[in-house]
Design a protein around this nucleic acid. Structure first.
Length: 991
RNA sequence: GGGUGAUUAGCUCAGUGGUAGAGCGCUUCGUUCACAUCGAAGAUGUCAGAAGUUCGAAUCUUCUAUCACCCACCA
């Protein structure tokens, strides 16, 4: 049965993948024949995800390593799974509800979660199927999910990942590694949740900085003196205000102080005095103290900074240090607060505090300092109103513009603004109660492991990025005000006798961190010496004091927040292997061998896994971390939906086949460098597949199939040569892959299959297979069958589909190629003599072909060839390979001669001169030009070589082999040049 | 502001001290029995610039320029 001319990827890939899967080919330990293990954890894609180029790249590299090790007989596990992706998933489901005109809050938490699970079960498998199309050889029977086993998980979502996460939280809490606190955090006003520093994208946007006057209390004045660098007075005037610059005027309402640098002499006269915030109803303007702190930079702006502890990270620090109250101005959606008492009441109390009254954090937080007319406004609206009001009162700092008019001083300038990476809205620093991991306590081992080399990070440059982040790590805010996620295992209790309803709650509640509600109830019973415990389904809020209706009962309720997604994915390595159970898989595969991941999640994920694995099991999660770069479009732009330049890997797979896509990504995977993907390149590698296919087709047509895997030991030089070349490429592939140089492996295979096997070996084999003796034919068939098999084996990790298809087409096999035996042969197969001889033959053929083309000998014409000055090696090479040379150089006969005829085309080769006596055919001028050009080129080379050798220091300093090589080179070039000059002379005689 | 990387053929990129490489594109030729998703031949580079180290630099050092990315609280 004749093979088709091309591989039909579309038709074959699904069939082949199904065959692998139904044979259990990817199961952990499949094809293992040694004790060593090899394990890779997939970076779990979001359940909401669909395969993009980054996934395709990332998973191709993983699959290569996994398939390679599996074929080498390692006990191999590629652990797949998905991440529940808290915000992203909740967003998707909420968006869906929105289409039905519903909101999350229309449902109970339980109902909503049921909907998310439903969605997960319907759509969560998308990416798995897409990974399968790519050829990913994961052990799908072990597919994991970071929310498996969570309360409310439907059938089919069992598992212990949730239990593991909860156990880690409880353990870490008990060890004091997790704490709760009211801190300033990044708040996403769209999702109404805290997010971590990493989820904030700082972007430069056009902005304004306004300069306002804060009048001194009671109309006091002082002499403001400004000096230049030399100490000379440049400005001296009486002022009754202090000038403040801000990009966020609306936060002035929450100012607690104005700070200046202690060494700033300009403001020394007024430090300790009070100034007035120039916003709000005139009759209730608040006064705030002028304090000193190291934070303000005297050389920036006016040198004075307003301190709004609840809405700015710097100010938070200053306020904490100086016991300045932090007034929260906004609600969870970043609208100006409208809760609490009226403005006048709150402002009055704030004034007392500014004048020195004691205060508590809770009290301050309850004060709403938003003037009544601004309450409920969006923060940006409020900003405009505040600016308008100040300006209209003449409290803006005025400057003269180029028209000579006095205008308010507003610096228009780009400012860095924080945006939520998911919501894309402006992040608001908010003072809220959150849970934190005290990262400072657990970061040590994660740093040490990489420093000591226990875990290596590649490329080297990413080590620095890793160190820099970990060495400056901030507490990790792990609580999220979402529903989809692992709910924090903390229960609060309220002692019945404390009574007092909600208002009394915050200071009187108790807290327990434990793994289950049952334990919380037990705790409450013991703690309160009361068996009557009521579990509230939601935390009590200010408007339902009535929930504490039973005066005899103790009430407990669970913290409503969930954990940051990365807290659970940080446990991915141990969690997927069954921890905290002491499973055989955990024993066998942990620590895992290598993590392959994108640079964009080094902090989010890699660093956290390092910290968490050490914190929980005291071991590194992986030996190596291979960090790959970004896949960009062909112009080098980041692929993004909004730019419309996204290449969909699935469409590419449809068009070119998975193997072509994989090979392209592999060949371009130079470490640490972004890759620009073009479809042209993919088409090129698709062609490579076709080339391989047709080489196999040729072999099949000539019965060169059915290798039983035994390494052939041929006698014929060309067969010996290709066996050696195969050994060379096997060596390169193994070496490259072991060093994660994927592109080197791919390129070596490409050059071997196309440049050696197809371009030369297949051509060389033709005279042997067609006209050779019985023995020659048999030997060549056997060699070719083996060589083609080796191509398939070595290419299989990169191009699994086409190689598997050919493997099964070319013979009856014991095993599928996915379980093929990876070869171990090496240099012993290289025959140096055969190498030399075949390389000589190749260069002869190339020289003849080149000469023919340049002097326009018709391509189809068989010509005679003369040879002179041939040495013994050349003689032998010619004799043994005559048929091949004649065929490939289109020569019909060879004649020995002592003198070359005038007007022949001269072809110098090592150890001889060949000539084509076709004077009547050739264009003498063209031949002359050809020769002269070669001479010129040689001369340049010869000069360079001479110059080096003439330098006595070269011989002294350079290694002997380099000197020797240079001498040989010079000899050979000089000889060649002489031959060409001869030829030119003969040509001159013709003319 | 700090850090990292890049700058090599028209394009995309390999190459880490010893005579500049690949793929694509381009030019010319070619339907012979693996393959036109092909074959043969060919053209193309002061390896960003400058200085230094060295017998020898695309490769090491320093500086400069341009670009990219990451981190960062300058009101």
């Amino acid at each position: 049965m004749a093979m088709d001319k091309t591989f039909d990827a579309k038709q074959a890939e699904g069939r082949i993948y199904d065959a692998w899967e139904s044979a259990g080919a990817f199961r952990a330990g499949a094809n293992a024949n040694r004790d060593e293990t090899f394990c890779i954890m997939i970076p779990p894609p979001n359940v909401t995800g669909s395969l993009h180029m980054g996934h395709a790249f990332n998973n191709t590299l993983q699959d290569i390593l996994v398939r390679w090790h599996r074929m080498r007989g390692y006990d191999t596990l590629w652990q797949p799974g998905q991440d529940h992706a808290g915000i992203a998933t909740q967003m998707v489901v909420e968006r869906q509800l929105a289409q039905e005109g519903k909101r999350r809050t229309d449902f109970t938490r339980e109902e909503f979660l049921a909907k998310v699970w439903e969605w997960k079960q319907e759509s969560g498998g998308t990416i798995i199927n897409q990974l399968k199309r790519l050829g990913a050889s994961c052990d799908w029977s072990r597919n994991a999910f970071t929310m498996s086993g969570a309360p409310g998980a439907p059938e089919g979502e069992e598992g212990n990942f949730h239990d593991a996460v909860i156990k880690v939280f409880v353990d870490m809490y008990n060890k004091g590694l997790i704490y709760r606190g009211k801190r300033l955090v990044n708040w996403d006003p769209h999702f109404e949740t805290a997010i971590s520093d990493l989820e904030v994208e700082n972007t430069e946007v056009p902005g304004s900085m306004w300069h306002f006057k804060y009048p001194l209390a009671g109309g006091e004045t002082y002499t403001y003196v400004e000096r230049n660098a030399d100490g000379n007075v440049v400005l001296e005037e009486e002022r009754d205000y202090i000038s403040i610059a801000t990009t966020r005027p609306e936060t002035m309402l929450g100012d607690g102080a104005v700070a200046v640098h202690p060494s700033d002499e300009r403001y020394a006269p007024i430090v300790g005095k009070l100034c007035e915030i120039p916003v709000g109803p005139k009759e209730h303007r608040r006064l705030i103290p002028i304090i000193t702190d190291e934070y303000p930079d005297p050389n920036f702006g006016s040198g004075a900074v307003k301190i709004t502890g609840a809405h700015d990270f710097n100010d938070y620090g200053v306020a904490s240090r100086n016991n300045i109250p932090m007034y929260r101005l906004m609600d969870t959606s970043a609208h100006m607060r409208s809760d609490g008492a009226d403005y006048a009441t709150c402002a009055k109390r704030a004034q007392e505090i500014a004048e020195g009254a004691d205060f508590t954090v809770e009290e301050v937080d309850a004060l709403n300092l938003v003037p009544d007319d601004l309450r409920g406004l969006d923060r940006f609206e409020a900003r405009e109103k505040v600016v308008d009001q100040i300006t209209s009162e003449g409290l803006a700092v005025m400057v003269e513009n180029d028209q000579g008019e006095l205008v308010p001083l507003v610096d228009k300038k780009p400012i860095m603004q924080p945006f939520g990476d998911r919501s894309k809205v402006v992040i608001e620093p908010m003072l809220t109660d959150q849970w934190f991991v005290d990262t400072a306590q657990i970061v040590g081992p994660a740093i040490d492991a990489v420093r000591s080399g226990e875990t290596t990070i590649m490329p080297e440059s990413d080590r620095k990025v890793y160190f820099h982040w970990l060495e400056n790590i901030e507490p990790w805010c792990i609580s999220r005000q979402l529903w989809w996620g692992h709910q924090i295992p903390v229960w609060y209790g309220r002692r019945a006798k404390d009574g007092g309803g909600y208002e009394n709650l915050k200071s009187t509640r108790d807290m327990i961190c434990c793994a289950s509600e049952q334990q919380a109830i037990e705790w409450a019973k013991a703690n309160y010496s009361n068996d009557k415990i009521v579990v509230l389904q939601e935390p009590p809020s200010s408007n339902d004091d009535a929930v504490f209706s039973d005066p005899e009962a103790e009430y407990i309720w669970r913290d409503p927040d969930v954990l940051d997604t990365w807290f659970s994915s940080g446990l991915w390595p141990i969690g997927t292997l069954g921890w905290p159970e002491d499973t055989p898989e955990l024993k066998k595969y942990f620590p895992t061998n290598v993590l392959i991941t994108g640079f964009d999640i080094i902090f989010f994920w890699v660093a956290r896994m390092m910290m968490m694995q050490y914190a929980v099991v005291g071991q590194r999660p992986f030996d190596h971390v291979y960090v790959h770069a970004l896949v960009r479009d062909e112009k080098g732009k980041k692929m993004s939906k909004s730019l419309g330049n996204v290449l969909d890997p699935l469409e590419l797979i449809d068009e070119y086949g998975a193997d072509a896509v994989r090979f392209t990504l592999t060949a371009m995977a130079a470490m640490g460098r972004d890759l620009k993907l073009s479809t042209q390149r993919i088409a090129g590698y698709r062609n490579f597949g076709t080339k391989l296919w047709n080489a196999a087709r040729f072999a099949e047509m000539h019965g060169a199939t059915g290798s039983i895997g035994t390494i052939p030991q041929p006698k014929i030089t060309v067969n010996r040569w290709i066996v050696g070349e195969t050994a060379k490429v096997r060596n390169i592939v193994d070496l490259s892959l072991s060093e994660f140089r994927f592109n080197d492996a791919a390129n070596a295979l490409y050059a071997f299959v196309w440049g050696k096997v197809c371009d030369w070996y297949v051509e060389f084999s033709k005279p042997l297979l067609m006209d050779g003796t019985e023995t020659e034919q048999a030997e060549t068939r056997e060699t070719m069958a083996w060589v083609i098999d080796q191509c398939l084996v070595l290419l299989h990790p990169i191009m699994p589909f086409i190689t598997e298809e050919l493997w099964q087409t070319l013979g009856k096999r014991d095993k599928m190629l996915v379980h093929g035996d990876w070869p171990t042969y090496g240099d012993e197969l290289i025959d140096a003599d055969a190498d030399r001889e075949i390389n000589w033959v190749i260069s002869l053929i190339e020289a003849i072909r080149s000469a023919r083309a340049q002097v326009n000998v018709p391509a189809g014409l068989q010509v005679p060839v003369l040879v002179t000055e041939i040495d013994a090696a050349g003689e032998q090479a010619w004799e043994r390979n005559e048929a091949m040379i004649k065929r490939l150089a289109r020569i019909d006969s060879l004649t020995r001669t002592d003198t070359l005829p005038k007007g022949a085309i001269t072809i110098p080769v090592e150890g001889g001169v060949f000539a084509l006596p076709v004077a009547d055919l050739i264009d003498v001028a063209a031949e002359k030009a050809r020769l002269e050009k070669s001479v010129a080129k040689l001369e340049k080379e010869i000069n360079g070589l001479r110059k080096r050798l003439d330098n006595p220091k070269f011989a002294e300093s350079a290694p002997a082999d380099v000197v020797e090589e240079t001498r040989d080179n010079l000899r050979a070039r000089t000889a060649e040049e002489a031959k060409l000059r001869d030829a030119l002379n003969r040509l001159a005689e013709v003319a």
